[in-house]
Design a protein around this nucleic acid. Sequence first.
DNA 1: CTCTTGACGCCGG
DNA 2: TCCGGCGCCAAGA
Length: 109
Amino acid sequence: MDDLVERVLEVVERIPSGRVLSYGDVAELAPAPTPRDVGQVLRERGAAAPWWRVLRADGTPAPHLRDQQLALLRAEGTPMSPFGEGVDLRRARWDAAPGAPGEQPSLFD
DNA sequence: CTCTTGACGCCGG
DNA sequence: TCCGGCGCCAAGA
């Protein structure tokens, strides 16, 4: 198991239920060379991790995973964008700051 | 070594 | 807003 793979999965596994991160976010936190590499890791070794909590920078899931991913996200109460074509990143994005609880969206704003 | 492929992201028209 | 194009970088052919 490469260190990169381990670091990426580590970050993904820490995303709380109901919150999400973009591929780019994970790439910065891992750290991974580029967001593409995060996708590659999840594609090959991500089966056991909550991969559905990782999506594109605009809040939409990768096309071929769209249905499944949106269903899983909705099921755990992730703040969705009004028209349901993606996630409302402003509210659902996980603040991975060390020490910050990160749970429960503000629901106010 | 070169060329192609992506679960991506940003910018310009 | 909706594309198209380009940069990015690891892997495989």
